[in-house]
Write a protein that binds this DNA or RNA. Structure first.
Lengths: 181, 181
DNA sequence: ACCTGAACACCGTTCAAGT
DNA sequence: ACCTGAACACCGTTCAAGT
């Protein structure tokens, strides 16, 4: 944690860089955004970024962490809503950031750091889903399969263009699977 | 089609370049493979590639077309086998090429040509799946949803590491959905 | 500790010149 | 028509030098 003014200043600057990078990554895509572009938008020299982030992938991970944190926080405040509504909200929240899902998968092959982040993310998400499904009375084996399927269907819906109508149909179908037939 | 010796020679050389590129893309990934690397492996100067392919994305598309063609051909000869066996075969066939699924999604954002290819591919695959599902007596609306879901689950299984056991469980679950409960 | 200008190695692509 | 060596603009990253 930040102990003194220097640490706080450093964290503030890191935050602004992450803010700027997040905006550019979402608007132009990760690959199309250069470190020089991020630096210019943040008002610093290109190499200054390397004082705060080891490399471009670490900057990506910082942006991802902040996004995932906010999304999970928002979802936690929606527990009373039905699962289908929460999933549709999630798809809408990622409308602007859909490219980042693909970016992560693309960088997994090149960067160990992104691979680790991706693995941790999927493990955490899987545990969360399995927990929710078993809490609803689903047996562990079935919950494991449903968590995998649900994750991949959501990833597919995020990375490919769909009308609101199509999304709703697929999400309703997905969430109706656990219910008695 | 090739009309004379010159056209045939050109096609042969194109094929060798595609062969070499295909091997390198699968072994190292698309992004990690440089045009200079492809050229060196093919025994030509880097810029010679641009006589045969407009740019790196067009070379990718040529490689994709050849792979998809072969896979669809092989699948056509397996119509007698159950759907689950064909899907598991597909997953195995893409074990070495799983990165290309992600690559296509990553390039969709940067390249119009790849975006067009991706759209055409999904339309063709979707039509094929809907046709097979309706032929089995499923109604059109349900078939459309199942085709989307099936595609995304398969994409997810291809792009993420799984044990053979996990694959089988998910694929069996997927193919059992159309059957009476 | 923090920031910079200048440089490095690499990349996809182009151009002028050859045959 | 086909191929090349040399160059161009760009990229992520590093380094030596400043404060």
């Amino acid at each position: 944690m930040a102990r003194n003014k220097r640490d706080i200043d450093r964290q503030l600057k890191r935050d602004t860089i992450e803010d700027v990078a997040c905006g550019l990554f979402m608007a132009q895509g990760y690959e199309a955004t250069s470190m020089a572009g991020v630096a210019a938008a943040a008002g610093v020299a290109p190499n200054t970024l390397y004082w705060y982030f080891a490399n471009k992938d670490e900057l990506l991970i910082a942006v991802l962490d902040r996004m995932v944190g906010r999304v999970f926080e928002a979802l936690a405040g929606m527990q009373h809503k039905p699962l289908s509504a929460r999933l549709l909200w999630l798809l809408k929240a990622f409308d602007q950031a859909s490219g980042l899902v693909t970016t992560v998968h693309a960088r997994v092959e090149q960067s160990d750091a992104v691979r680790d982040w991706h693995e941790r993310f999927h493990r955490a998400l899987d545990a969360l889903l399995v927990e929710q499904l078993t809490a609803q009375g689903m047996d562990a084996q079935q919950a494991a399969t449903m968590a995998t399927v649900g994750t991949y269907v959501m990833e597919g819906l995020m990375s490919h263009p769909h009308s609101a109508r199509e999304r709703e149909t697929v999400v309703r179908w997905l969430t109706s699977l656990g219910l008695p037939a």
